[in-house]
Each structure stands twice: as C-alpha cells, then as structure tokens.
Design a protein around this nucleic acid. Structure first.
Lengths: 195, 195
DNA sequence: GAACTACATTGAACTACTTCAATAAACGCT
DNA sequence: AGCGTTTATTGAAGTAGTTCAATGTAGTTC
C-alpha cells in the first residue's frame, strides 16, 4: 500500500505493533494536507482542530507578545515530529499559539473525534502517545534547565549539537528566539566560533 | 478500605474508571514510603528506580552545574503531583537529576517492573498517564515561553498567581532558581510589590 | 535564652545580554 | 541580469539582571 502516511506509521510502529487490520483502521482516521510556506495551521484565539504530525517541511509555533508585539518561538518542528497545541486540541480551549509553516510542508492531521474514535478502536495507541509525551517532557525539562543555567554561547552550541537538522532548515532568527536570545546574539556567537 | 494511596487513586479516577477488582490490583503495585526533610529520593548518576507520586510534603528536582557548582531547580512538586526522572526511569539511563525532600513527605512509589505489570494488567491506565503527560507538556511549554518572553517581575507574579501552594510551601531561593532568577531578585521584587 | 544555622534583605559594582541603526549578504521573482 | 524583500552582520550605547558582601531575621537545639 502506497501512502504518504508511511512515515507516521513507521513512527508508531517503533512503539506498538499493529496488525494489518489495525493499520487499515489507523490510516482511515488521518488526512494528509499540504501547506505552503507562510500558511497557517493554527491561529491564536482559535481552537486547535487537529493533532498534527509533520511528514515533510517545517513549522513554527509562536506567541505574539501583546506588549512588545514580538513573536516568541515556543517550538520548532520538522519531519517526523508532532506539532500542535495539545491543550487546545484536547480541552477545546482557544489556543494562545500561532502555528505557521516555515517551509512547504505535508502534515498528517487527525480531528478530535477521529482521535477519540481511534483510541477506542485501538486502545494500545494510548501507549504510543504516552511514550511520545514522556520523551517530550524530558526534552522540555532539558530546555528549561538549559535556558536557566547556561549562557547564550553554550545554549547555542548545545542546540546545534542536538538538533543539526533544525539548525540547517530554519532561519537563524527563529532559532535565536527558540533559544531565548536575540538574533544578533546568534550572529555574534557564530562569528566568534569561526575564529 | 483505608489507604494512604487514596489520594493517588482519586487522581487516577478523575480520568479512568477502575472496577473494585482493578482498584485492588492497582493498590498492590505501589508502596508508600516516608521521607524526612533533606533525604534524597534520587541521586544524580543513579538510575531512577521509581515513578513517584507525592501524597504529602514537597520535593525539589535539581541539577548541579559542574562549572559553577550551583544547584539549578528543574522542578518543584507538592502533594498531588508526580515527581521523578521519567527518562531515567523508563530508559534505565543514569539520571542527571537529584531529587531531594524539601519538607517531610510521603511518596507513592512504583518500580519499573511493577509499572509494566500494571500497564499489562490494566491497559487503560496508559490513558491516564497519557493525559497527565499532556497536561505536563503544556505546562512546560508555558514555562519555556514565560522564561523567554517575560521579565523577572512578571514571571514572579505569574508564578504566585498560578502556584500559590508552591509559593507558600517552599523557600524563596528555590522558587527563584525555578524561575531562572537570583534569590536577591525575588527579594527585590517582593519589596517593590509591597509599596 | 544564648548560640547556631538557614533563609532573606539591601545596596553597590559589574556584565551578559539587548536594542538600535546602519550596512551587507542571500534569496526569489519577472 | 537586476530589483525588491527577507535574513544576517557589526558596532555602539543602554539595561535588566547577576554577583558579592554585609546585615538582618527567624526558627532550632542545647
């Protein structure tokens, strides 16, 4: 079977084994949608209608500071990552986030009702999501720790070591915001690293 | 049935319904342990043997910066919260964290083998943990955002608004570290707020 | 109730970073 | 190729925060 969802299926299969029947059910619950650079997957104030898995491309999740009107990057995502506002998606609450496509992307999308139906039909997928979220919480705790404990230079070095793919696929000023520093700071760090 | 685990049971029951039989199985998988102020639940370098739910008291999770030798608070927890190093617990990898009791505490502990047995016997608990982790990731994303976007004063105000119980039960210098600022800074903010 | 320990306050000096502004390079488009 | 737009660089000035050191306060132990 030919499907763009293969990447997602592979990801899930790392953690739970699905029978052919279950695979068929699984695939029925998703839709694939293409987005072009600049398009929005989610606007702040709206309710997040889909949980989303990136098949290709990259997206950013950001918050607009009402005072400074600057965008603060909350997360960055590329292929093989999840990207949505889970709180808004599951609680049905208005999202604080904007999610926008940075480079042309294909997303696997699942609606809330489909998500719930899928969990009912294949309960062991709860396990998959539990494990994914476990890894995500660890990564977020590390991010908090690094932000608090490390100076700008070391945070940047850590980042390019840990996420070379993000570093290569995203403009510098987004990475700067993600790391909690100014774009100029990244520029100066890079200049200094060259010598 | 009388059990100190009631608090945990109540927490779980918010999200999944357990039959009396399942409750009995559930309870068998946990042990309750008392810790006194200053005792360690986990030492860095060791493998986290237990997932832990706080029944009473408070704990801190911190990392010792190898350069400055200062402790950086990664998380704070009081009753009704989870507190462990999930990555170490599930992967069996050495933990970066120390987890130490701040005020006398009772913890509900579950070993890895018991955790896995419990998930096998009552698979719908996967759902409970999935939902808990969902909430936790949202809280962590908010924490990252606030650290990056807000100045010290507003971070502190936000914190005491969101976690009054933490604020009341923990010394100020721990809260300062948690918020990514110096203890002196918190002191100055508080002084300023009084006027 | 003195003496110790743990935590909190205050102010002065310092610094890692930001902001601003101007220039430069890179990228896409016709 | 050439033009506009978006992204990156560089330096100078400013600042939000840290660090350090000294003093103060509260809770514990004998």
């Amino acid at each position: 079977m030919e499907t763009k969802l293969q990447l997602l299926l592979d990801h899930v299969s790392k953690w739970v084994n699905l029978s052919p029947d279950e695979v068929a059910i699984f695939l029925q619950h998703w839709e694939v949608q293409e987005f072009q650079k600049g398009e929005y997957v989610l606007y702040n104030g709206k309710i997040c209608q889909y949980d989303a898995f990136l098949l290709t491309g990259s997206v950013k999740g950001y918050y607009i500071d009402p005072v400074t009107a600057k965008e603060e990057i909350v997360f960055l995502a590329i292929a093989d990552w999840w990207a949505s506002d889970l709180e808004s998606f599951h609680q049905g609450s208005p999202s604080m986030l904007n999610i926008q496509v940075v480079s042309d992307a294909e997303l696997a999308l699942i609606s809330k009702s489909n998500f719930e139906s899928l969990m009912r039909m294949i309960p062991k997928l709860e396990r998959y999501f539990r494990i994914i979220l476990q890894g995500y919480t660890s990564a977020l705790l590390r991010r908090v720790y690094m932000r608090n404990a490390l100076p700008a230079r070391e945070r940047y070095l850590q980042f390019i070591g840990q996420y070379p793919a993000l570093n290569q696929n995203l403009p510098q000023y987004l990475i700067a915001s993600y790391l909690g520093m100014s774009a100029e700071m990244v520029s100066k760090i890079r200049a200094e690293l060259k010598s």
